[in-house]
Structures are given as structure tokens and as C-alpha cells.
């Protein structure tokens, strides 16, 4: 990797009380690159994303986005710099309509015409959301909610997305659709840091990948190389 990274974590540590969740995690993501972060339950994948969006404060190390340290910056300001986080469990605003959920995704955009244009784009990307525009978010199916969560993040036209377990609990057909969309982000020049339990899908979609075990990176490399690595195959791909 040669270009200056859009996101860089350097030796990031984080803790919940006495429990050390991250022990010096270093990750680099280049502009427009899709990077997968795989690992078991409790390895610290979600915590890693949380320390990037400053929901969880890193106890050591540094996080830089677009060349500037964002450590300690309020979450809303991180978002304003073009880094959107689609959290685990989608976290749709259940009692807001689909349209309002998308409008909240564009909270930082003031231009109403621009918001409308991006909303039309979202309905083009996920036509089902257009059909359900007036429905409350909580009434959507899991797959529709995941689409809405991604569409909501795209309303800001971010430079980078953090995606946490986008395939969790979804039917295989829907998972494929979601991953098609993730791949299409590459063409739009949006970098992605993708956290997944479904290592197979993640490694096939990603350019590069990191493996996280109990709070530390154990492997990194091109996604396809990791896909063929016997140790990885045994531990994460069930083969």
C-alpha cells in the first residue's frame, strides 16, 4: 500500500473498566479501499470501530482520519469530516419513518434540494426503501433495516464507511445483495472498514484484511491471500 491512508490506527488500546479490549491495534485503510476486519466474538472488532468514531475513548495510541488526528473529537464532528459508522444491529430510529431516517442521515446537510437528490439516489439503490418511505423504521424486516442503515450513512456522501456486521441475522440472498452494494462503494471512491463474522463473504469483497484475536492483530494481508491461508481457513472459514 503506497498512497497516504485515509484512516490509520496506530497502536490503539481501549478498555472497559479493568478489561483490556484492545492491546495496540494498528490498521491502515487507503482511500477507496475495502478492508475487512475479521475475528471471533469478543475479539474487539466492534470496539475497534467505536474507538474510530470516538464513541469509546482510546486509552493509548492514535487515530488519524484524512491526515488529522481525530482522537477525542466529538462523534458528531468525526461524522462531519466524512466518516460514517453503520453500527452493529443497524440501530434504525424505530419510530421515525424511512424518509425521516434518511433525512437524519443527512442531518449535517443544509441544502434541501441536495438532501432530496440523495434520497432519490438511495431509493434507486434500494427500491424497496422507496416503496416503504412513509413506514416507520421499526416495521421493516431485518434486511430492509440493514439497507436503510447503509442508505442512511450514504446520505452524507462520506469519504469512508465503518460497517459493523452488515450480514448479521440476514437471509443468504439478502447478504449477497448487501455485499454487492458494499463492492459498488469502491466505484464511488468510498473507503470501507468492514467488520464481519462471515469471514468468507468479507474476504471475497475486500481488498485487504486484518485478523483480530483478543484485542490484537494476528494476521494481515491481501484478502485473497488470507482466504488461502491454511491457518485462517481452519480458524475462521470452517475448512
Amino acid at each position: 500500500m503506497s498512497a497516504a491512508p485515509i484512516l490509520e490506527l496506530r497502536d490503539v488500546c481501549a478498555a472497559y473498566g479493568p478489561i483490556q479490549a484492545l492491546r495496540g491495534v494498528s490498521i491502515r485503510v487507503a482511500p477507496g479501499e475495502i478492508v475487512a476486519l475479521i475475528g471471533c466474538n469478543g475479539a474487539g472488532k466492534t470496539t475497534t470501530l467505536m474507538t474510530v468514531s470516538q464513541v469509546v475513548r482510546a486509552t493509548a495510541g492514535d487515530v488519524t482520519f484524512d491526515g488529522c488526528s481525530i482522537l477525542g473529537v466529538p462523534t458528531a464532528d468525526v461524522v462531519a469530516r466524512g466518516l460514517c459508522h453503520v453500527p452493529e444491529g443497524r440501530r434504525i430510529f424505530a419510530r421515525l419513518s424511512v424518509r425521516e431516517n434518511l433525512a437524519m442521515g443527512a442531518f449535517l446537510v443544509r441544502d434541501k434540494a441536495l438532501i432530496q437528490r440523495r434520497m432519490d439516489d438511495a431509493f434507486q439503490l434500494f427500491p424497496i426503501l422507496g416503496e416503504r418511505a412513509g413506514q416507520l423504521g421499526g416495521t421493516l424486516s431485518g434486511g430492509e433495516q440493514q439497507m436503510l442503515a447503509i442508505a442512511r450513512a450514504l446520505m452524507l456522501e462520506p469519504k469512508m464507511l465503518l460497517l459493523d456486521e452488515p450480514s448479521l441475522g440476514l437471509a443468504p440472498l439478502i447478504v449477497r445483495r448487501i455485499f454487492d452494494v458494499i463492492r459498488s462503494l469502491r466505484e464511488r471512491g468510498i473507503a470501507v472498514l468492514l467488520v464481519e463474522q462471515n469471514a468468507q463473504m468479507a474476504l471475497r469483497a475486500a481488498d485487504r484484511a486484518y485478523v483480530l484475536e483478543t484485542g490484537a492483530i494476528t494476521h494481515e494481508g491481501p484478502a485473497l491471500t488470507l482466504l488461502d491461508d491454511p491457518a485462517i481457513r481452519e480458524a475462521y472459514l470452517g475448512a
Partner: peptide, 8 residues
């Protein structure tokens, strides 16, 4: 938390 994550 999610409100913060959309920039509110």
C-alpha cells in the same frame, strides 16, 4: 448513540 453517529 446512533443520533451522535449521524452527526447530531
Amino acid at each position: 448513540v446512533m443520533a451522535g453517529l449521524v452527526g447530531i
